[in-house]
Nucleic acid binder design. Structure first.
Lengths: 347, 347
DNA sequence: CTGAAAGCGCTTACAG
DNA sequence: CTGAAAGCGCTTACAG
């Protein structure tokens, strides 16, 4: 590989001058700059970022550890993060924890050893010791979507509580009284928030939530399928199921279809996280939409200010209910779908 | 940050011995090893991968440049790549080209400067000069899914030609004669292969493909929507539309739904790329499934052998037709959906 | 405006 | 089994 030394030789200048020319340092003569550029061109020189990073102690890279890349919610988040990071001059390295604490550990450790300038993490598990250690350490950390209570790092997330209350109002107004839920891992903040808010909203309507109507899921499709099968095996199956993320809703659809049942005639379905496909499932799915891309952008900006040593605070953005047809016909006409969600993931 | 020198001081050994102990070098006494580990623990030492990479000239990292992370096909591919890479001891850095040649260039250049050990790329554009340069340069390169004809690098891809012929047979047997297609960018090999194979298969049946029935798309949802709107505006709209990737099929569904039309009664729809949602759209979508995860795994193994200096060849895997209900009722009962596709993306 | 030199944190022949 | 030393490719005070 051709190094800066080769460029120096070729251009008849010192490596110091070559380095300055390449980094746009003001005190380089036009002549020197031209000779450097010519040498770079003829040699096909490509600066070694590894060496530069070692010297400058910054890599121009941020890490993003998410729980599941196959989850369209996180895919959209990751994309927004990359775009905003690129705009600010950072590259991003994504680690996929696949909802596993050990993989989360693996990626956080790897990213730290790689000397990323900052870390964005949506913890798969509130108990991952490496993530806790990272938040306490010198590398700037920002939590996005999920967080670890007590850890010393800003949090950028959506609050789904109001939207969940709206959802329960909606279900109640449609006459549903036997309402089941598929939860996420209780080790995650979003998992806990969603079940807690749901339980409270049901209580406000005096609707019970028996143990049999609670399916313990893990935010992945298979768990949604299994939980739904158990609901359907009950002597008194629920009227409607609330899957607290989009993949578990997909699993629920699988289970319902496998029995030849219809949504919403045989059983209703609501979800958390809006994704483009929910407009085109049979029937379109009523769901709670998060400002996903905005979360990603805000998180990156928060991390960038942390890296710059500026004071940085947490941000909470609202989520909102998108009524479609999967819980039955609404009393009021549904809001126009396209305006509410069509652009979000495909802008 | 605590460095290897601090560990040496703390343990009363030289940095050389600390380095050997940390790297599992055989000639280190048990006593020394224990003291090193104790010092690492008490100091919270984390090796600096940047420094190691500079010294060893390998980063333990491979790059993956794909055209669109929001495309579930590429998401699944990326995930398989990461899993296989991790199994082989590599990290992967993903660059999202968003179907733009300039972004592809940006990422390939960045990855090369970062001194990745090898590069996996699915070119957004056959004319990206950086990608061509990378393929010609010293860093091992493997193309996955798409490739650049003439570039000197192995290719791991699926061949969709037979499956496309099966699809056209299927459409023909259902009585469709006015058949339209939404193509991908002709700058991509997959874009060209799909339209070419489609055209040939139509010709075998003596079915014409008028210019008005060809929508030029870019593998993204919006282009599928626009192309479909134009088809629907035609004095004689097609019986059925073949969208040559899953996102353009989503866009087509958007356009069809926006006019209050039904699939397949008013217009049929077939797609390329199977994804879990296609089982649950209204109606379930007939599509061509690629062995996506396998492509990712094979590509990583090919790249790893290239890195190891072993001879490496290209691989072509077959794609196959999955008949569902979006083109009309099949003459023969549809194959069971779950076995064919359910596991692929959610294993 | 330019260059010589130190040093970032590691690894690894080389010598003992 | 262990250590002193060179060197990976850069950047950046320091001196001129």
């Amino acid at each position: 590989m051709v190094s800066i030394k080769d460029v120096a030789t070729e251009s008849g200048l010192s490596v110091a001058t070559v380095s300055r020319a390449l980094n746009g340092h003001p005190s380089v003569s036009d002549g020197a700059r031209e000779r450097v550029l010519a040498a770079v061109e003829s040699l096909g020189y490509r600066p070694n970022v590894v060496a530069r990073s070692l010297r400058t102690d910054r890599t121009g890279t941020i890490g993003l550890v998410i729980s599941d890349v196959l989850n369209p919610y996180f895919t959209e988040l990751a994309r927004a993060v990359e775009e905003e990071a690129r705009a600010l001059g950072y590259s991003v390295i994504i680690g996929n924890a696949d909802e596993r604490a050990d993989l989360e550990d693996h990626h956080v450790r790897g990213l730290l050893e790689r000397r990323i300038d900052g870390l964005l993490v949506s913890p798969a598990d509130g108990r991952s010791p490496m993530t806790l250690e990272a938040a306490a350490g010198p590398t700037p950390v920002v939590f996005v979507d999920r967080w670890i209570p007590g850890a010393d790092a800003p949090v950028v997330r959506a609050d789904g509580r109001d939207a969940i209350r709206d959802l329960v109002d909606h279900l109640h107004s449609l006459g549903h009284r036997r309402i089941a839920v598929i939860t996420g891992p209780t080790a995650t903040t979003t998992g806990r928030e969603r079940i807690d808010a749901f339980r409270e909203a049901l209580a406000e309507h005096g609707i019970p939530l028996p143990e049999a109507y609670i399916g313990r899921g893990d935010f992945q499709a298979e768990s949604g399928r299994l939980a739904t099968e158990r609901f359907l095996d009950l002597p008194e199956p629920p009227d409607v199921v609330f899957a607290t993320d989009n993949l578990m809703a997909l699993g629920a659809l699988d289970a319902i279809a496998a029995r030849g049942l219809r949504v919403p005639e045989d059983i209703g379905l609501a979800a958390f996280d809006d994704i483009p496909w929910f407009s085109h499932t049979d029937p379109p799915i009523t769901t709670i939409a998060q400002p996903t891309a905005e979360l990603g952008r805000v998180a990156v900006r928060a991390l960038a200010s942390l890296i710059a040593g500026e004071p940085t605070s947490s941000t909470v953005l609202p989520a909102h209910l998108v009524v479609r047809r999967s819980c039955g016909e609404p009393a009021t006409p549904p809001q126009t779908d396209r305006a509410a969600t069509g652009g979000a993931a495909r802008e």
